[in-house]
Write a protein that binds this DNA or RNA. Structure first.
Length: 215
DNA sequence: GGCCAGGCGGCCC
DNA sequence: GGGCCGCATGGC
């Protein structure tokens, strides 16, 4: 089968429509949200962001000067609050005190050098906060394309990211919408326990067939 | 009450 | 490079 990623994109876009990502009004808010949402439901992140906003701490410059304990208490609903409070403060300090490189590859390495920013968070910040065409890979992306049979069972982050970036035109709006649609699709049908019957990708997907072979 | 959620770093081998 | 662990809340 020809692995036409734009075909998948078009099916998902027809099914769900534009997703209007990232849910954040300012660049700082997007960066903060990217850290708070690590392994956490967005509904919990919203509460944390709302608490920060109510205390005028929804900016890197305010966070940089804050006590970790204060921040931790405000972001408690987002989980891992001690870790995330430390990460928010160190990320704020690094981003404010070292001017981020404008070269895409250097910017990504700079972000990855900051404690608390891994691959997905780096790409989310690149794409949604700084508008660089950097494809975001998450567990949803891996799950959907493994079930489709287009990715091996175990793939490294770098492999999956290259899989997309080598095959798609390097466009910010496309990468933005594609990732958002994959999240939407994983939440709607391609859940951990998937609803395959009405899935818009079922004609292209191996998953049900594999289950029949097993059973 | 258990499972799950838009990861990451530290450690071990 | 991979596997395992700790980190933690809220919704269903």
């Amino acid at each position: 089968m020809i692995k036409n990623l734009l075909r998948i994109y078009n099916i998902l876009f027809d099914e769900y429509g534009p997703q209007h990502w990232w849910p954040g009004e300012t660049q700082d808010e997007i960066i903060i949200g990217a850290i708070l949402t690590q392994n956490t439901a967005w509904s919990n992140v919203e509460k944390a962001i709302s608490n920060l906003k109510a205390n005028n701490l929804l900016s890197l410059s305010a966070l940089e000067q804050s006590e970790q304990e204060i921040v931790a208490n405000l972001i408690r609903p987002s989980g891992y609050f001690n870790q995330k409070a430390e990460r928010l403060i160190t990320v704020s300090r690094k981003l404010l005190n070292y001017s981020p490189p404008s070269n895409s590859e250097q910017l990504r390495n700079f972000l990855l050098s900051i404690r608390g920013i891994g691959n997905e968070t780096a790409d989310s910040i690149m794409l949604y906060a700084y508008s660089y065409p950097s494809f975001v890979v998450d567990t949803y992306t891996q799950r959907i394309f493994q079930r489709l049979g287009w990715l091996p069972e175990k793939s490294t982050y770098a492999y999956v990211r290259a899989f997309f970036m080598d095959k798609l035109p390097s466009e910010v709006t496309l990468f933005n919408e594609y990732h958002a649609l994959l999240v939407r699709h994983a939440k709607t049908y391609c859940k951990k326990q998937p609803d395959c019957l009405q899935c818009p990708l079922k004609e292209l997907c191996n998953y049900e067939m594999e289950k029949e072979v097993v059973s």
